[in-house]
Each structure stands twice: as structure tokens, then as C-alpha cells.
Simulated scan of single mutants.
Amino acid sequence: MTEGKLPTRIVHISDLHCPAKNPAQPEALIASIRDAAPDIVAVTGDLTRRAREREFVLAAALVKALPGEKLIVPGNHDVPFLTERFHRPFARFTRSVGAQPLFLETPDVLLIGLNTAIGASASAWDWSLGVAPETRVAPVAGLLAERRGNRLGIVTCHHPLRPHALDRRRSTTARGIAAFAELAAAGMRVVLHGHLHRASKTCVDGACEIAANTALSDRERGGPAGYNLIDIANGGWRALSVRWDGKRYGLGEAAEL
């Protein structure tokens, strides 16, 4: 990353799966993110375990306590299991976190949300996997092309758009590869996602996917729970992983992805 002042900082959290099994963990997460002082908090889905109303209440209170502007997209765990899945899959999510902006922007960044979760589909038997239909991707690509300018174009979604080498089944998103290519052509340079519970960075032809581990739950894969920091300055950016050590989130020991 180019040396200089860091004018934009994004905290990327995902897969909260409220309620946390460790009761001390939510306050520790809030304290660490407050210390990080982000301009924007990107929340990439799975705020709850089973989309229960009480879980959404806990998740909404936690997110409200965080500093900075927020852009929140739903995950597959934010869709109720029963009747609402078929006719109002995102109603509880919207009641809990409110209607989300299409995008957030700073002088350095254009951040746009993309919903990759589904309620139910006759063509997909595993509703936990992601979808990236043209009807959802085209408006995001249009915003990127129209508004990005010289800024870093970032798309946030719950599911990865490209298969991940360590978890190919769970990273299979319908039409994901085509969506990644379309968004990259429109000016996307970074995708922030969750779902895999793995902190990682993978790049293809100048566009990178950054995954966050679960922020709060004990369903860790490939490393401890945590969140990501993305710092943008002077035309460059870097991604750091902040990890839970059982007592705190070690902001001072953040490791580059």
C-alpha cells in the first residue's frame, strides 16, 4: 500500500450468528471496533443463527453500538425456516436493521451491497448456497460504472462469487463467476463476503475477494473468530485480520491478509 494518511477505514464483520455462546464476546467486539474507529462498517450477513426475532433484536443492538456508517446485507441464516421463507424471506431482516442504502461513498471508496441470499428456489435444492442473478447484479454494475470514478469500487455480499479452494461446495454460488466478471468489468476491485467462516484474500486479474471469519460464533474454520480491516489511501489499499484470542480482539496484533 502507498505510504501516507489513511483517509478511509472499513471494518468488515460477518457471520455474527447471534446470540454469541461466549457472553463476553459481543462487548469485546464492540470495544475493539470502536478502537479501530472505522468510517464504514460492512456487515456481510448471517446476523442470526435461525432468523428468530429475538436473535435479530440482539444483532441489531450490537450493530447499532458500532461506530461509522453501516451497510448490511442478509445471509442465508437470516431467512426464516418456515412459511416466511416462501413469501417474505427478508421481512424480519429488514424490520431489524431497517431499509439499507444502495451504496455508501467516501472520497476514496464506493461501497455497494449485493444480496446473494435466497428464500426458496425450485432450481436449487440447497438454499444455503448463494445466487447472483443478472437482475440483482446489473444494478450494482450500473452503479459502479456510473459513480465510481477514480475511487476503489467495493461490493459486499454474503456468499463468495468465485469458488474457494478450501471449501468448494459451500463456495458454489449460482452464476457467481459470471457476476464476478461483470462487476470487475464495471470497476469493482474488491468483494467483501462471509459464509465460509475463513479469513482470506484471493485475487484474479486485479480484482480480489476478501472473506471474513465468523465474528462471534464458535463455528470457526481455518483460524479464530474475528473481523477484517480494510484501509484505503492514495490509490492503494490493504486488508488486515483482527482475531479473537479468547479474551479480546487483538487490534494491535492484526495480521495482513
Rank of each mutant, 00 (worst) to 15 (best):
A60Q: 01
I177C: 05
P7E: 05
Y227K: 00
S241N: 06
L58H: 07
L152P: 02
L166D: 15
A36N: 03
I232E: 01
A186C: 06
I210W: 07
A51N: 01
G45A: 08
R136M: 11
R34A: 04
G130T: 12
G68F: 08
R136L: 13
A178G: 14
L29D: 02
I112G: 00
R148P: 00
I33D: 00
L82D: 04
T83F: 10
R95P: 05
W244K: 00
D39Q: 10
S217V: 11
A255L: 14
E55H: 09
P26I: 12
H77D: 01
H164E: 14
V140F: 03
C157Y: 09
T214V: 12
Q25Y: 11
T106I: 12
E84N: 08
N228I: 07
A239D: 04
D231G: 07
S96D: 05
A211L: 10
I72W: 13
E3N: 13
C157T: 15
L62M: 10
F81R: 15
A99I: 09
F90N: 03
V131Q: 15
N115H: 08
R88I: 10
S171P: 08
C203E: 15
E69F: 11
T116P: 00
N228D: 08
R49E: 10
L192W: 11
V43A: 02
W127L: 10
E134R: 11
Q25V: 10
L152N: 04
G250M: 07
N228K: 05
N76Q: 02
V43D: 00
R147C: 11
P74D: 05
A174N: 14
H197S: 02
R50F: 12
Q25S: 13
P224M: 06
G252T: 06
W125M: 13
F90M: 07
P160E: 07
K247D: 15
R136P: 01
E209Q: 14
A138L: 12
R9F: 08
F86V: 10
R136N: 11
V131H: 15
D46Y: 04
T172R: 09
A37W: 08
A225T: 00
L183Y: 04
P74T: 08
L66M: 05
R49Y: 10
